[in-house]
Design a binder for these strands. Structure first.
Lengths: 217, 217
DNA sequence: AAACTGCCAACTGTCGACAGTTGACATGTT
DNA sequence: AACATGTCAACTGTCGACAGTTGGCAGTTT
């Protein structure tokens, strides 16, 4: 009757979800420390499961551990951002190339739909929501059908989200991003792997630059 | 006086090192389970630190966790191997391209030295030791100067090592690998990023094929 | 006043014990 | 004999408590 997988995750698993949310939304601000006894008490669990959750998030790069000092939410230097985008570029360019050669027709429809929704939102005066940008990249990843690459992209995207301090709602940047997305979809529709990789590289280069300027200001 | 970093790692840290060694060498065979109380007692520590070590290795992909059942060392299917090499290819091709454009002269000397040592070993009748193959890729990674990419490659290489069941000491394969390495060094010496990426892709494609055949036999 | 020294509170690292779940074995049923 | 059911040992998940370390503060010295 009930599925074999336990519906109620372990306490550690629940703590991971709650903490990840709090770190990503900035509820726990960058640079601050995570007190084990305090947070454990606040979540109503013991220190054991909480420690597991903290170590797990640290392995995802969302926390940094300092021996005998505790866990801190990291803030990145420009060099970190550049190095992180080198990783992301390597992964997502490969994903774009794979997607171009592996995508099914329904993959294509999904990609086009996300692009169309972004346009609608934009023309309605709404800012291009980050949610739709993530959805686009996620849909492309699904089309690539390479689970290990997808997983790593998920992790690095998370870290990028962590340090998007007011990812400037810059209209020109948003417009360029949507154009990039459209061009990517065309390349993938044509099965042109080389072009898909090139466009993705240019797209991420632009996003990285945008993020660097919004960090230094 | 004494370095600020404590010389004696935490018990969890030590346990990670010991367990990683035992998993990678096959001392704990693939498919087998890790009993917490038994291993903890064998290492002379409590279950707390050991659990942390297990979770850490699981985050590296060296163990898989099953709720209420424990930790198992994974064995991979051919599809897993292919997907894993898609990730590794994305990362190492990018690293080769970066190395071609960033390498210093001493990086070049180091790469050439590793290749030369491999040749000497091979001509002396010795098999091409896996150690030197790892050293080559590690040296190339250092030359790429992209810490996040390097770290991810280290993790995926570890998982590849895990499932190299008697990575066949196949002389033709070894010869081809050394040729690939030499050609890579030439491309990097010339600063030819495109060629470095192409050669690396071909090299890893060959290694993956070799691994797949040695797995099915 | 600045620098050094010794103490202290807070926190992390570690431990042993209890509770809940899982898979397997034994028993009973068709 | 094959299958369903009840029982149990083993193991994981969780907890509370103790020990060791860290950074900071007060007191002292120059």
């Amino acid at each position: 009757m009930t599925p074999p997988t336990p519906l109620h995750l372990s306490l550690a698993g629940q703590a991971v979800d709650v903490l990840r949310e709090q770190v990503l939304t900035g509820e726990i601000p960058p640079g601050s420390r995570v007190n084990e006894v305090e947070v454990a008490h606040k979540l109503g669990i013991s220190r054991g499961p909480l420690r597991e959750a903290i170590r797990h998030l640290a392995s995802e790069g969302l926390l940094t551990l300092v021996p005998h000092r505790g866990a801190f939410v990291p803030d990145a230097s420009p060099d970190d951002v550049r190095a992180m985008f080198e990783l992301r570029t390597a992964l997502e360019c490969a994903a774009a190339e794979l997607a171009a050669s592996r995508r099914t027709d329904v993959d294509l429809v999904r990609l086009q739909e996300v692009c169309a929704e972004s346009r609608r939102n934009y023309k309605a005066g709404q800012p291009f929501p980050y949610r739709l940008d993530l959805a686009f990249h996620q849909t492309l990843l699904d089309a690539a059908r390479s689970p290990y690459i997808s997983e790593q992209v998920r992790l690095v995207q998370q870290r990028v989200v962590l340090l998007r301090s007011a990812l400037a709602d810059d209209p020109p940047h948003q417009h360029a991003s949507m154009d990039d997305h459209d061009e990517l979809v065309r390349a993938i529709a044509d099965g042109d792997a080389a072009k898909a990789g090139t466009v993705m590289r240019r797209h991420l280069s632009r996003v990285c630059a945008q993020m660097l300027t919004s960090l230094t200001h």
